[in-house]
């Protein structure tokens, strides 16, 4: 991984060339399950962006104070705390969506990307740039999940963000609402993404 610590390259790297989902299929556990509706996916991925940004910021500020032995534990504590804050906010202000997301908000804690970025970037960089790194990684993740949700909601319900867009004669594809389709759509998106990258000549 190149350690270019400037905002521009970081953005490009996290959104595209080093996108965590394309390259390693990391961290999809907490979010694939909610990709059958766009609204849920938007809220869920905004939560991930916020938690990642704040976690990286906090870890970067505290890095010189954290004893090596408890580093993982402290990072987990930081992540879990921000996730709880997000969970409480969702419960209070968008109760319907919070209910639909159910346990998946809590599962952001075990999203490997978050701890991965805290370890790989925030531990050795300054606070603001770390926060930027966290947020852009979150956005790269958001981009992929939103594309999945777009396809699944459009074909599964014939709607986008809950608004009917397909003609009435359109027969919804039930499979798109069900779990297996998330895997198919993700696999195809990875395929397309990698094919484009290879054409650009980026190392895959």
């Amino acid at each position: 991984m190149s350690s270019a610590a400037a905002p521009g390259p970081i953005l490009r790297e996290n959104l595209w060339t080093n996108n965590p989902i394309f390259m390693q299929v990391l961290g999809i556990c907490s979010a694939l399950a909610v990709t059958n509706l766009l609204v849920n996916t938007v809220i869920m991925t905004i939560a991930v962006v916020a938690v990642m940004g704040m976690t990286n910021l906090t870890v970067a500020i505290m890095k010189s104070l954290i004893p090596r032995k408890v580093r993982m534990m402290v990072q987990t504590l930081i992540i879990a705390s921000y996730v709880i804050v997000v969970d409480i906010i969702l419960r209070a202000y968008v109760p319907d969506i919070s209910r639909e997301l159910g346990p998946y908000v809590g599962l952001i804690i075990t999203n490997c990307i978050i701890m991965g970025r805290a370890e790989a970037f925030a531990q050795s960089n300054r606070p603001l740039i770390s926060m930027w790194d966290g947020m852009t990684s979150g956005m790269g993740y958001m981009g992929v999940l939103l594309s999945i949700a777009l396809i699944r909601e459009l074909l599964g319900f014939g709607s986008l963000f809950g608004y009917q867009v397909m003609p009435a004669a359109f027969e919804p594809w039930i499979i798109m609402v069900m779990p297996p389709s998330a895997f198919f759509v993700l696999g195809i998106i990875i395929w397309i993404g990698k094919a484009i990258m290879e054409r650009e000549g980026a190392p895959a």
Binding site: M62, P67, V70, M73, V74, L77, S81
Partner: peptide, 13 residues
């Protein structure tokens, strides 16, 4: 350190 950090975050929550 662990105690202080834990306390601070629990307080926040």
């Amino acid at each position: 350190f662990t105690a202080v950090v834990t306390f601070a975050f629990v307080l926040l929550l």
